[in-house]
Amino acid sequence: MATGGRRGAAAAPLLVAVAALLLGAAGHLYPGEVCPGMDIRNNLTRLHELENCSVIEGHLQILLMFKTRPEDFRDLSFPKLIMITDYLLLFRVYGLESLKDLFPNLTVIRGSRLFFNYALVIFEMVHLKELGLYNLMNITRGSVRIEKNNELCYLATIDWSRILDSVEDNYIVLNKDDNEECGDICPGTAKGKTNCPATVINGQFVERCWTHSHCQKVCPTICKSHGCTAEGLCCHSECLGNCSQPDDPTKCVACRNFYLDGRCVETCPPPYYHFQDWRCVNFSFCQDLHHKCKNSRRQGCHQYVIHNNKCIPECPSGYTMNSSNLLCTPCLGPCPKVCHLLEGEKTIDSVTSAQELRGCTVINGSLIINIRGGNNLAAELEANLGLIEEISGYLKIRRSYALVSLSFFRKLRLIRGETLEIGNYSFYALDNQNLRQLWDWSKHNLTITQGKLFFHYNPKLCLSEIHKMEEVSGTKGRQERNDIALKTNGDQASCENELLKFSYIRTSFDKI
C-alpha cells in the first residue's frame, strides 16, 4: 500500500482533458527560462521544448504516446526543470519506465491550478516501474492521483506527508504495488545497510526511497516546507523545498512566496507586481503582455491589467481597466465587458449561442446573426445582446428569417469595421425574408467608422429604411451602385405612401 494514499474509496472516473512563447529569463536562482504550460502528445517531438525550461508557468501534460519505446527515452533528460506552477499529468506514455532521468531536479509542483483537485496525476502508464522524482520536495496545493499503472512499484516507500501538507485526498490505487509483488529495495538494503531515512506512518517504520538508488530526502521537522541542505541544516524561511546553503534567500532552489532578481522575498516591493503567484514583474512586463494579447485571437491570451499590486489576466467583477495605466478602477454604474472572439468572429444561430455573449459591452471581433427560429426570440436576444455598444469588426445579418427588427441591439452605437466582410463591408444584410426595420432612427444613433453597407434580398425592408441608415451611420456616399439592390429590397412591402385627393359631386333626387 502506498504510504499516505487512500484505498478502496469510491472515486469519480478520471477524465483526461485534452506555445513556446518565453516569458522571460528567471535569473540567477533558476538555471534556465520560464516556459508556458505545455500539452505534449502523440510523439516526442515537442518534448524537446523543455530543454531550457527551469519553470513551467502553467501545467505540463505528457500523454497518448503509443509508439514510443524505452530506448526512445534513454537520452532524454531535462535537468534544468525545477518547478511547475500548476500540475504534472502523465497518461498512456508507452515505453517510459521512470522519471528519474527525465526530470531529475523537479523540486516543486505548486498546484496553482489543479487537474480535478490533483497536482500530480500518473494514470495508465503501462510501462512505468517507478516514479523516480527523487528531488520532489513540495506539492504546495492539491493532491496526488496514481492509478492503474500495472508495473509501478516504489510507492509504499514514499512518505507523501513530507511532500504535501495533507495526504487525506491522495488516491493511489490499482498499481502493481497493490499486489505486494514489488519487493522494493532501498539503497544499501541488499548489503544489509540502512542508507535512507525511515519514518513512521500508520504504525509502520519504513525506509523512504524513490528507487533502488535514490533515497527520499527527509528534512528535520523544524525546517517545515522550506527544505534543508545535504547536511540537514534548514533553508531560509522564504525558500521552498530545498537550498544549497542554509538561511540564505539567494540560495533557495525555489521560493515559498515570490522570486525577485535572484532572491526569494515575502512580497513584491514597489515598483514590482505579483505575477502568477510566484514571481515579481515590473510595469513594462505587464504592459507588454497586455499589448501582445490586445489584437491576438490565441486562446488563453489575456490583456493583463494591474489590481491590488498584482498583474492579473482581467479586472475583477465591479472594476474596469483604465487604459492609460492598466489599473483596475471601480465602475460607475454597470461595468464594461470586452469579449474577445477566439477566431475573430462568432455566429449567433440560437439563443444558446447568444447567451455566451451575455453582459458583453464591447465585441472584439465580428458578429454573424443567422437565426431561423426560436421561442420568445426578441426578448431572449435583447437579454443577451442588448448591452453590446461596440463591435470592432463587422455585423452580418444573414438568412435570419425569424427577425423582424434589429432593435434587440438596443445599445449598439459603434461598428468600427477594423475587419470587413469580403474585404469591403462593415454591415452586411443578406436574404432576411421578414426583416422590416433596422432601428427606430428617431431614437437610435449608430456610427460606422469604416467599410460599406450591403443589402440584398431583404424583400420587406424598404429602401427608405436603408437610406436612413446611410445618413445616420455616416456611410452615405461610400456605397457603390450594386451594394444596395434596388429590386430585391422592399419588393414585397408597401414602401411608397402617396396622399390621394378626392373630389365629389353631391346629387339628390331633384338636383344634379
Rank of each mutant, 00 (worst) to 15 (best):
L29E: 09
P31F: 04
E33K: 04
E33I: 07
V34A: 12
P36K: 09
G37V: 02
M38R: 02
M38I: 01
M38P: 01
R41H: 00
N42K: 08
N43Y: 08
L44G: 04
R46Q: 05
H48D: 10
L50H: 01
L50Y: 05
V55F: 01
I56A: 00
G58I: 00
H59V: 12
L63T: 14
L63N: 02
L63M: 11
M65W: 02
T68K: 13
R69T: 05
R69L: 09
R69S: 05
P70R: 07
E71S: 04
D75W: 04
S77Y: 12
S77I: 12
F78T: 01
P79N: 06
P79G: 13
K80S: 10
I82D: 06
I82V: 07
Y87Q: 00
Y87C: 00
Y87F: 04
L90C: 11
F91I: 10
R92V: 04
G95M: 02
G95V: 02
L96N: 02
E97K: 13
L99Q: 00
L99A: 10
L99F: 13
D101N: 09
F103Q: 00
N105T: 04
L106C: 00
R110Y: 04
S112R: 15
F115I: 03
F115K: 03
F115V: 13
A119Q: 00
V121S: 10
I122K: 00
I122H: 09
I122T: 04
M125G: 09
V126T: 03
V126I: 04
H127A: 14
H127V: 04
K129Y: 05
N135T: 12
L136Q: 02
I139M: 04
R141S: 10
R141F: 09
R141M: 06
G142H: 01
S143F: 07
V144M: 15
V144T: 03
R145G: 02
I146Y: 02
I146N: 00
K148D: 06
N149V: 02
N150C: 04
N150P: 12
E151S: 06
Y154H: 09
I158Y: 04
I158D: 02
D159A: 04
D159I: 13
D159P: 09
W160M: 06
I163A: 01
L164G: 13
D165Q: 09
S166M: 14
S166T: 10
I172F: 03
V173T: 05
L174A: 05
N175P: 08
N179Q: 11
E181T: 06
C182K: 05
D184T: 04
I185P: 15
I185E: 03
I185V: 13
I185M: 10
I185S: 07
C186T: 04
C186W: 01
A190H: 12
A190L: 09
T194R: 04
T194V: 03
N195D: 12
P197M: 11
A198L: 09
A198T: 11
T199H: 14
N202M: 08
Q204N: 08
E207Q: 08
E207L: 11
C209Y: 01
W210A: 03
T211V: 04
S213A: 05
S213G: 14
K217E: 09
C219R: 03
C223F: 05
K224L: 14
S225F: 11
S225H: 05
G227F: 06
T229Y: 05
E231S: 06
C235M: 00
C235K: 00
C235W: 00
H236Y: 03
H236E: 14
H236L: 01
S237F: 08
S237A: 13
E238S: 09
L240K: 04
G241A: 14
G241C: 02
C243V: 00
C243G: 00
S244F: 15
Q245E: 03
Q245G: 03
D248V: 06
D248W: 03
D248I: 02
C255Y: 01
N257G: 05
N257K: 12
Y259P: 01
L260T: 13
G262Q: 03
R263D: 13
C264H: 00
P269A: 08
P270T: 06
P270F: 10
P271Y: 12
Y272K: 07
Y272M: 02
H274A: 15
F275P: 01
Q276W: 04
D277F: 04
W278M: 03
R279V: 04
C280E: 00
C280G: 00
V281W: 00
N282R: 12
N282C: 01
S284C: 02
F285M: 07
F285Q: 13
D288I: 04
D288N: 04
D288L: 09
D288W: 08
L289P: 06
L289K: 15
H290I: 04
C293M: 00
K294G: 10
N295A: 06
R297V: 08
R298F: 11
Q299G: 14
H302C: 05
Q303P: 09
V305K: 12
I306V: 13
H307Q: 12
N309W: 09
K310T: 06
C311L: 12
P316G: 01
Y319R: 10
T320Q: 04
T320M: 09
M321S: 15
M321P: 02
S323F: 10
S323H: 15
N325Q: 10
L326C: 05
L326T: 10
L327E: 11
C328L: 02
C328V: 03
C331M: 02
L332Q: 11
P334H: 02
C335M: 05
C335E: 07
C335H: 09
